[in-house]
Nucleic acid binder design. Structure first.
Ligand SMILES: NC(=O)c1ccc[n+]([C@@H]2O[C@H](COP(=O)([O-])OP(=O)(O)OC[C@H]3O[C@@H](n4cnc5c(N)ncnc54)[C@H](O)[C@@H]3O)[C@@H](O)[C@H]2O)c1
Ligand SMILES: NC(=O)c1ccc[n+]([C@@H]2O[C@H](COP(=O)([O-])OP(=O)(O)OC[C@H]3O[C@@H](n4cnc5c(N)ncnc54)[C@H](O)[C@@H]3O)[C@@H](O)[C@H]2O)c1
Lengths: 253, 253
DNA sequence: ATGTCTTTGTGAACGCGTGCACAAAGATTG
DNA sequence: CAATCTTTGTGCACGCGTTCACAAAGACAT
């Protein structure tokens, strides 16, 4: 922290670790809840518990913001809410476009949690001509033909892709060409984008597969180490389990 | 790799790094695509590109599986598909229960990508009595009152929570009590679970906020370093930007 | 059989993220 | 004002994950 009191508190901005950035929204959520209950201050310990993280980690995270806690007291809730919001860029509102208004796209469009955090659904775009004009969540769906114009006119820089996987890369290219520089991709596809464009993906299948892996491991360790009479340890799906154990399988020639 | 040929190829199972596990589904997806095109073998380089990762990382990942590549040739696609599927526990099918059949829950229920990867929607559960019996995606919604029985009867060990945030912890507790040991949580809540239960979360708002952070940083670095006449570099949302720059803000007393 | 050429599997170095543990800062009390 | 008590901010060490770079393994040609 270097004793010298540089009058600029926060601006260590350049260099907030990615892992920290990913946790800021978590802190913000917990702080917002406290703020609504009019709690004036929190200790790192309390807040860490609420956010589900280690308190030392939380303090270190805040130290990157140059944040002002008060030793012996804790952090000022309102002040932190503002600081984190600012750091995340949530003092502005971000117009977002959703492309591919099917099951998932429609669900997202209807989701209220967007607006409450500074994001505004500015446009819904779909390739199906039949959908053009149809209102979803109170917003008329527009056709892909106008994608470029829609993005430009609304100043959209964040795009959400909820099209089928086959269309994702193409849609992505068009979004980027139109000026979008951040993409949230729900299609199970690896998108390639030019430098300077951020892509984050949400993949339900991957999450489930990771869970399945651990689930299987739990089951396996039961049968290996512990006795089988362990009470509440299922983890053997669908009943079938029997003669399937190792299977040398296909093996290449 | 230790020259000695222990007849058991894979079973280095205990000790696959978490980061590797998280990438296996990615590889699997890429391999499945190759398999459908009847491609017999791939090099680590090709596969890595398809999966969007570094080839050295991919090779190291496979080495944890004790995988058999062939030097000078690459990996046998079918064999790898099987090995990874087995490692992830996808040779079995996993019955999944979705709790909270609203916008998102219904979208997930309708999603086809489940079944194709070894997961089966075994039950849809909602607290709204009006929904009980209503078919969603061809499955009748059941009432929360029967949650325990439903989980038990179907041998569900993976639960998906898509209820409002306020209900999430309670639903989680009931799922765990009923025998669920893996939870995928879409509600913006920190769930607390007993040891041995895995929780993964999907949080759209967090993803957007992370994107917003980087988006803002891109914009900020423009105004600092480069001239303002830069052509395709938007990243200033909603036009308003002016007298708002620093704002000493509330500051604690 | 020998040599060349391709590609794997991994040793080693590095960087990031995490968590412990504690000195210092400040509040609070007497 | 001094003593005490609480809680921050961070130095430090450790472990995980990533990446480079290369020896060895094997395919393939001659
Ligand atoms: N529904 C889910 O729960 C879920 C879960 C995980 C992943 N996903 C993925 O999300 C994506 C969407 O899923 P869904 O269930 O909503 O599918 P969906 O078929 O219901 O909707 C897709 C929509 O995209 C539109 N579309 C197709 N091509 C387009 C194009 N080139 N430009 C613009 N729009 C186009 C279609 O008209 C349709 O309205 C898929 O990639 C799917 O794999 C969905
Ligand atoms: N819709 C989205 O795109 C989206 C995006 C991100 C996060 N989320 C989160 O996902 C969750 C669901 O969102 P949604 O838009 O589908 O909400 P929704 O209101 O449409 O659906 C919630 C459903 O849960 C049911 N429910 C309420 N309490 C319950 C209980 N105790 N047990 C069982 N069921 C119960 C309700 O009857 C309703 O059908 C929310 O937590 C939301 O924050 C949604």
């Amino acid at each position: 922290m270097a004793t010298g009191r540089t009058h600029r508190p926060a601006t260590r901005s350049r260099g907030i670790p990615e892992a920290t950035v990913a946790r800021l929204p978590l802190y913000l959520r917990a702080l917002t809840a406290l703020s609504e209950r009019s709690v004036p201050t929190v200790s790192s310990e309390e807040l860490a518990t609420a956010a589900g993280v280690n308190s030392a980690k939380l303090r270190k995270d805040f130290s990157y913001l140059g944040s002002y806690g008060t030793r012996g007291v804790g952090y000022d809730v309102e002040y932190l809410v503002y600081q984190i919001s600012r750091e995340l860029g949530l003092t502005q509102d971000w117009p977002v476009a959703i492309v591919g208004i099917g099951n998932l796209g429609a669900a997202l469009a209807n989701y209220g949690g967007f607006a409450s955090r500074g994001f505004r659904v500015a446009a819904l775009i779909d390739a199906d001509p039949a959908m053009a004009g149809t209102p979803v969540a109170g917003i008329a769906v527009q056709h892909t033909d106008d994608l470029d114009r829609i993005i430009s006119e609304n100043g959209v820089s964040i795009g959400v892709i909820t099209t089928p996987p086959g269309a994702a890369q193409q849609v992505c290219d068009r979004l980027v060409a139109a000026g979008v520089t951040s993409i949230l991709n729900f299609a199970p596809t690896v998108l390639s984008v030019p430098e300077g464009v951020d892509v984050r993906k949400v993949d339900l299948s991957i999450e489930l597969q990771i869970l399945a892996f651990h689930e299987q491991r739990k089951a396996g360790e039961d049968t290996t180490a512990e006795d089988e009479g362990a009470p509440p340890m299922r983890a053997t799906p669908t009943g079938r389990k029997g003669p399937d154990g190792d299977m040398p399988a296909v093996m290449p020639a």
